[in-house]
Amino acid sequence: MKIVNDFFKYDYHDRGMVKWQGFYLSDHTAALNKQADAFNQKLQYKPQQSLEVITAILATAYSKQCEVTIQLNQLDRNHRNLPDITTLIHGYNANEIVIDVNKFVRIDDIRNVRYGSE
């Protein structure tokens, strides 16, 4: 038993994560890269629209009860923009719109809005 303990104490050097590198298959890595690309593409900045364009699209969507996809001018902790919000416009109040149940979004916080869930 002393020989085994001495071997692990003095002679054996663990290579850490290096020994696990061969376990990643190329198909698995390709799938992970594809998933990351799709996620990053979903979070890309859309062009900043003017206030007139944003309000016109929101007014039309509200009157026709069309779904819109909204990108906000807000970033998460990693400095990436938040996922788009796809919703109906349920109402408006001064400079805010109502989405979902009692959730308000300031029109000034909207970067881009488009019809549907494109």
Score class of each variant (00 low, 15 high):
68 V>D: 02
74 Q>R: 10
36 A>D: 08
57 I>Y: 00
52 E>A: 07
93 N>E: 10
45 Y>R: 09
116 G>K: 10
2 K>W: 03
75 L>N: 15
22 G>H: 06
78 N>Y: 12
63 S>C: 03
96 E>D: 09
99 I>T: 01
61 A>Y: 00
86 T>A: 11
32 L>E: 14
61 A>F: 03
84 D>S: 13
90 H>Q: 13
3 I>E: 14
55 T>G: 02
60 T>W: 00
66 C>R: 12
107 I>L: 04
67 E>M: 15
19 K>A: 14
100 D>F: 09
64 K>F: 15
108 D>M: 14
64 K>V: 05
108 D>N: 14
66 C>M: 10
31 A>W: 01
34 K>M: 06
39 F>C: 08
80 R>Y: 10
114 R>L: 12
28 H>L: 13
39 F>G: 07
118 E>I: 15
60 T>E: 08
68 V>W: 00
10 Y>H: 12
49 Q>A: 04
29 T>V: 06
37 D>M: 11
102 N>K: 11
59 A>W: 01
61 A>R: 01
46 K>T: 02
39 F>P: 03
63 S>H: 05
57 I>L: 06
67 E>K: 11
99 I>Y: 01
59 A>G: 08
46 K>L: 06
79 H>P: 02
49 Q>D: 02
54 I>Q: 00
40 N>Y: 08
50 S>T: 13
113 V>E: 00
23 F>V: 06
85 I>F: 01
3 I>M: 15
44 Q>T: 05
87 T>M: 04
47 P>G: 05
30 A>H: 05
19 K>L: 15
5 N>H: 05
39 F>E: 15
65 Q>D: 08
19 K>S: 12
20 W>C: 11
83 P>W: 03
74 Q>V: 05
48 Q>V: 11
45 Y>V: 05
43 L>I: 01
99 I>A: 01
90 H>F: 07
64 K>N: 12
6 D>N: 11
90 H>E: 10
56 A>P: 00
86 T>I: 07
62 Y>I: 01
22 G>Q: 08
98 V>N: 00
105 V>L: 15
69 T>L: 09
57 I>N: 00
49 Q>T: 02
28 H>K: 07
11 D>N: 08
114 R>A: 15
6 D>R: 04
103 K>S: 07
